[in-house]
């Protein structure tokens, strides 16, 4: 069992790949944004890939462990200590019953991931333990952690201390807060004119502080449109960015008026705005590790290139990423 002493800014139970196959009923997948770091945390404590862990945003929690356990932290370094002693990121660590793990603000990156051997034993909802903030279901009691909660840990506990992720299998965070993000055109790229496409791929886009797991809002130059966006039936809506309600891909760059919003893991499943571009799955670790105020530079890739990049990350999330 794990007692939540302080929950941190936004700490929630997630599993990978989350709640798949339910978007037809309006359920987003949820799950960890930086799925690369999340998967490595499970590998460090020898959990199965679908074991649930914690996603920890910006400022971490204080947690007390009820039993001896192997744990691992990956992703952002939030200056974790165990009874006052520093805890390394990217390594499995032994925790004894009664010890408290205290985390602070992130030194680099946006989100840390905590895996505990056995996994967080939250109830399954539609096949997943991930937290769905849009409907207050899944995860632990349907939302981010709160003080005083007690999280059960699964019984199947392997995992030794002292296992490390090989350096070459870890994501590398940029030092200058500028991120190169692969981006695929479509499905609605023909609503945007060439000038706006050139701005999207040519200029930097800043992540707004009004960003969350539902959507990342971006600030940048103005948008201009093709005639298709203006000469359309009234059922589309009044704004050039309005379209007749359609399904939204996770990663869709959803243009709401003049504001592009990347549809994140807890995003809306459909709506009446265009998606001129889609950010592929391979790039989500970068989204998860970026902070408001950081800058994205978008780089056009094909569907095939995006799929190759995702396969390359999947190949790193295997047991041979770990050394003891």
């Amino acid at each position: 069992m794990i007692d939540v002493i302080e929950p941190g800014l936004e700490t929630a139970v997630q599993d990978y790949p989350g709640r798949k196959g339910q978007v037809g009923l309006g359920f987003p997948p949820s799950g960890p944004i930086d799925h690369w770091s999340f998967r490595l945390a499970n590998l460090l404590v020898e959990n199965p890939p679908n074991a649930a862990g914690l996603e920890i945003a910006f400022t971490g929690p204080t947690l007390r462990f009820g039993e001896d356990a192997a744990i691992a932290l990956t992703g952002s370094d939030m200056q974790a200590t165990l009874d006052g002693q520093p805890v390394s990121v990217w390594e499995s660590v032994a925790v004894r019953a009664g010890q408290a793990l205290a985390m602070s603000y992130s030194l680099q990156g946006g989100r840390a991931y905590l895996a505990v051997a056995g996994g967080i034993d939250a109830p399954l909802f539609l096949g997943s333990r991930s937290t769905c903030v849009l409907a207050s279901v899944g995860g632990w009691e349907g939302g981010p952690l709160e003080p005083g909660q007690t999280l059960p840990v699964g019984a199947e506990r392997g995992g030794d201390a002292g296992r490390r992720v090989r350096v070459e299998a870890r994501p590398t965070l940029p030092r200058d807060k500028t991120w190169s993000i692969d981006c695929v055109r479509g499905p609605n790229d023909d609503w945007i004119d060439d000038v706006a496409h050139a701005r999207w791929f040519g200029e930097g886009w800043m992540i707004s502080s009004r960003s969350n797991r539902i959507g990342f809002r971006l600030e940048g130059p103005d948008w201009t449109f093709t005639p298709k966006a203006r000469d359309k039936g009234p059922e589309n809506g009044d704004d050039p960015s309005n379209i007749i309600d359609h399904g939204y891909p996770v990663g869709g760059v959803n243009l709401s008026g003049q504001t592009p919003i990347i549809l994140m893991n807890d995003g809306l499943s459909l709506g009446g705005f265009i998606n001129p571009y889609t950010i592929p799955h391979s790039e989500f670790w970068k989204l998860g590790q970026s902070m408001p105020g950081d800058t994205y530079q978008f780089r056009e890739v094909t569907v095939g290139e995006a799929q190759e990049r995702r396969r390359a990350i999947d190949a790193l999330c295997k047991p041979d990423a770990i050394e003891s």
């Binding site: 695929v184 055109r185 479509g186 499905p187 609605n188 790229d189 359309k232 039936g233 059922e235 007749i244 359609h246 399904g247 891909p249 996770v250 990663g251 869709g252 998606n275 889609t278 950010i279 592929p280 799955h281 391979s282 569907v303 995006a306 799929q307 995702r310």
Partner: peptide, 17 residues
């Protein structure tokens, strides 16, 4: 048919409601 990133494909039958 239009792609939505690396995991989605959108099929459109027309442009009104």
């Amino acid at each position: 048919f239009a792609p939505g990133g690396d995991q989605y494909l959108q099929v459109s039958f027309g442009d009104d409601a």
